Amino acid sequence: SGVNQQQLQQLMDMGFTREHAMEALLNTSTMEQATEYLLTHP
């Protein structure tokens, strides 16, 4: 699906929903950016 499943699982383990985590990974290129994205786009 174009996203790193390991990163997706890590974000879900942090408490984010699958949909939200996927959106973040699709819009960013690193785990750090994805986390930042999730925190700034709740």
Rank of each mutant, 00 (worst) to 15 (best):
E19Y: 10
E19I: 08
G2M: 14
M22T: 14
E36R: 05
Q6I: 12
T35A: 10
L11C: 01
Q6K: 11
H41N: 09
S1A: 14
A34S: 01
G2K: 10
L11M: 04
T30N: 10
P42M: 15
G2A: 14
A21T: 04
T40G: 14
L11W: 01
A21G: 04
Q10Y: 11
D13A: 14
D13T: 08
S29G: 08
Q9C: 07
M22E: 11
L25W: 05
A24M: 01
T35Q: 15
A24L: 01
Y37R: 03
Q9W: 09
E36Q: 09
A34R: 00
M14N: 04
A24E: 00
M31Y: 14
Q6A: 14
E32L: 06
S29Q: 13
S29W: 06
Q10I: 14
H41R: 05
T28Y: 06
L38N: 02
Y37T: 05
E32Y: 04
P42Q: 15
S29F: 10
L25I: 08
Q9N: 11
Q5C: 12
T40V: 07
E32R: 04
T17F: 08
M12R: 03
S1M: 13
E19G: 09
L26H: 08
A24Y: 01
Q7P: 04
R18E: 10
F16R: 01
E23F: 11
H41C: 04
L8M: 07
L39R: 10
Q9F: 09
Q5W: 12
M31D: 02
L11P: 00
E32A: 12
V3W: 11
S29T: 14
Q33Y: 03
T30Y: 02
E19F: 09
L26S: 07
P42N: 15
M22P: 00
Q33S: 06
Y37D: 05
N4P: 08
L8E: 01
A34V: 03
R18Y: 10
Q33M: 06
G15E: 02
T35S: 05
R18I: 10
S29Y: 08
F16S: 03
A24V: 02
E36K: 06
L26Q: 11
T30E: 03
T17W: 06
L8Y: 03
Q33K: 06
L38V: 04
Q5R: 11
Y37G: 05
P42T: 15
V3P: 08
Q5D: 11
Y37K: 04
Q33L: 06
T30V: 02
Q6H: 13
H20Q: 12
A21V: 15
E19S: 09
S1L: 13
G15T: 01
A34Y: 02
Y37W: 15
G2I: 13
A34K: 00
E23R: 07
T17N: 15
L26C: 03
E36Y: 06
Y37V: 08
R18F: 09
L26Y: 07
E23W: 11
Q10L: 13
S1K: 12
L39E: 15
L39P: 08
L26I: 11
S1N: 14
E36I: 07
T40D: 12
Q7A: 10
E36M: 07
Q5I: 14
L39A: 15
L25Q: 02
H20P: 05
D13P: 00
L38C: 03
A21H: 00
M14R: 06
M31C: 02
Q6E: 13
T30I: 02
T17G: 14
Q9H: 11
P42E: 12
G2L: 13
Q9T: 08
D13S: 12
A21K: 00
T17C: 08
S1Q: 14
Q6Y: 11
N27T: 06
S29C: 06
M22V: 13
S29M: 09
G15A: 03
T30M: 02
L39T: 14
T30D: 08
V3T: 08
E19P: 10
M31P: 04
T35D: 03
A21P: 00
H41I: 11
E32K: 07
Q10V: 12
A24K: 01
E32V: 05
L11F: 05
L38W: 05
M12N: 02
E32P: 04
D13G: 11
S1T: 13
M31L: 15
H20C: 10
Q10K: 10
E19H: 11
T17H: 11
E36N: 06
E36H: 07
L8D: 00
R18L: 10
L38Y: 03
A21I: 08
H20N: 11
H20T: 08
T35G: 04
T28P: 01
V3S: 06
M22H: 08
S1Y: 03
L39V: 08
M14A: 06
E23T: 11
T40C: 09
L38H: 03
T28F: 08
E36P: 04
M12V: 14
Y37A: 07
A34W: 02
L26T: 09
M31K: 03
M22G: 04
Q9R: 09
A24W: 01
T30A: 03
N4K: 10
F16E: 02
Q6N: 12
H41K: 07
E36G: 03
G15L: 03
M31A: 03
T28E: 02
F16V: 06
G2F: 12
T17P: 15
T17V: 11
L38S: 02
H41G: 13
Y37S: 06
L26G: 05
L26A: 11
L8K: 00
G15F: 02
T28Q: 02
L25G: 00
P42Y: 15
M31W: 13
H20V: 12
L39G: 12
L11Y: 02
V3C: 04
L11K: 00
L38R: 01
E19R: 06
L39M: 14
Q5E: 13
T40P: 04
G15Q: 03
R18M: 12
Q5G: 10
G2T: 13
R18P: 06
M14Y: 07
A34L: 04
M12D: 01
S1R: 07
N27P: 00
E19T: 09
E23H: 11
L25R: 00
L8N: 00
E23C: 05
A21Y: 00
A34H: 01
E32H: 06
G2W: 13
F16A: 09
L39N: 15
E36L: 08
G15S: 03
Y37Q: 07
S29V: 09
E32I: 06
M14Q: 06
F16M: 03
L38F: 04
M14I: 05
Q7E: 11
M14D: 04
H20R: 14
G15N: 04
A21Q: 00
E19N: 10
G15K: 02
V3A: 07
A21L: 02
S29I: 07
H20M: 15
M22A: 09
G15Y: 01
N4T: 09
G15W: 01
N27I: 09
S1I: 14
G2P: 13
T40M: 12
N27E: 05
E36V: 05
Q5H: 12
E23A: 09
H20F: 13
T35P: 05
G15V: 00
E36F: 05
M22L: 13
Q7M: 13
Q10F: 12
Q9K: 12
Q33N: 04
A34P: 00
N4G: 07
L25N: 00
S1V: 13
E32S: 06
A24C: 02
L11V: 03
L25Y: 03
D13W: 07
A24Q: 01
L38I: 06
Q7G: 06
F16I: 04
T17K: 15
L25H: 01
L8F: 04
Y37I: 08
A24H: 01
A24D: 00
T17I: 12
E19A: 11
E23P: 01
M22F: 09
Q9P: 01
Y37N: 05
T35I: 15
A24S: 03
T35V: 15
H41Y: 14
L25P: 00
T28L: 02
T35K: 15
Q9Y: 08
E32W: 05
D13Q: 12
E36T: 05
T35L: 15
E32M: 05
F16Y: 13
L8R: 00
N4H: 10
H41W: 14
Q6T: 12
Q33I: 02
L39Q: 15
N4D: 13
Q9S: 10
H41D: 10
T28V: 04
D13N: 12
L8A: 03
Q5A: 14
Q7I: 09
N27Y: 08
V3I: 13
M22K: 07
T35R: 15
Q10E: 09
M12T: 06
Q7Y: 15
Q10N: 06
N4L: 11
R18N: 06
L11S: 00
Q6G: 11
Q6D: 13
Q10H: 10
V3R: 04
M31H: 04
S29K: 10
Q6L: 13
R18W: 09
T30P: 01
M12S: 03
V3H: 07
E36C: 06
T35F: 15
Q33P: 01
N4S: 11
